[in-house]
């Protein structure tokens, strides 16, 4: 058996690390595989926004017959789909991985943390796009929602842009909490943020105080920008600074959570 490869001792120089890109791709592939092997986790995540569209939007003719309102309705549920994928993949996903002894083993493999993190982000992004597939299909078939090719391209780019702050929020939760606590916190964060951000009901029907509060939330800012890109309704001038501000805050929280976790477990 031991004759099938060259004896270990005959090697001279220590081998180099594998390239950043190949390691990131490796981690993305295996994280995707691990996620897809637990179908219930995937299906729930993929179907919830589409079911919301089917039950709450499709029955209302006033919405489905108007192209602009339909597009906005699909766009805000799409924002929810991205937010939910990010929070679940990174919030509960990271917390669960950290509880696994295999995580410690992987840390001892010859790879820097960067490619691992990149692989994780890539996997999260893939799930964002996958969650949009049924939603967009149902929206296109059953509502008057339409996109020009340029708007469609804009929407594809917006998915990645919206994923940034919510990926960071997910990581802040996942690296700071145990897996049970992370699941609870993700749910307690996701639904209030979605509701108050106008992802379930359009902000036009909000009372004035809620609309004012809503303007300060990352979910509302993301929603308004997605609606602007897809249906041409201009977002408030605050949307971009609010989303960027939250991105900075959440980035700081995520970095603090990662550092603290390293310090606690691996110092």
């Amino acid at each position: 058996m031991s004759t099938t490869t060259a004896p270990v001792a005959s090697r001279t120089a220590p081998p180099a690390l594998r390239s950043w890109a190949s390691l990131a791709w490796l981690h993305a592939r295996y994280q995707f595989l691990e996620t897809v092997r637990v179908p219930i986790a995937v299906i729930g995540n993929l179907l919830f926004p589409t079911l919301a569209l089917l039950f709450f939007v499709i029955p209302q003719d006033a919405i489905t017959s108007d192209p602009a309102i339909s597009t906005a309705a699909v766009a805000q549920l799409a924002t929810f789909a991205v937010m939910s994928s990010c929070l679940f993949t990174h919030g509960t996903g990271v917390a669960e991985d950290r509880a696994q002894p295999f995580d410690t083993f992987v840390r001892a493999l010859p790879a820097r943390p960067g490619p691992r993190l990149a692989g994780r982000v890539l996997n999260g992004l893939v799930w964002c796009y996958l969650a949009l597939v049924p939603l967009v299909v149902v929206g296109a078939v059953f509502t008057a929602a339409t996109l020009t090719p340029l708007q469609a391209l804009g929407a594809v780019v917006m998915v990645a842009a919206v994923a940034v702050p919510f990926t960071l929020l997910g990581m802040a939760i996942g690296y700071a909490l145990s897996s049970k606590a992370a699941l609870a916190v993700v749910q307690c964060t996701l639904f209030p943020l979605a509701f108050a951000g106008g992802l379930f009901m359009p902000p036009e029907v909000f009372p004035r105080w809620l609309d004012a509060l809503s303007q300060a939330l990352p979910s509302r800012a993301a929603r308004d920008l997605v609606v602007q890109v897809t249906s041409g309704v201009d977002a408030s001038a605050l949307a971009v600074p609010v989303l960027l501000g939250w991105t900075v805050v959440l980035a700081v929280l995520a970095v603090v959570a990662v550092r603290r976790d390293e310090g606690r477990r691996f110092r």
Partner: peptide, 25 residues
């Protein structure tokens, strides 16, 4: 430094394998 670990082999604890992945994976 990960570059120092290219010639190192370690083992996960017995309970530490990803349940859903196949042996070859």
């Amino acid at each position: 430094d990960p570059a120092s670990r290219t010639s190192l082999g370690t083992t996960p604890q017995e309970t530490g394998l990803p349940d859903t992945l196949k042996v070859r994976e």
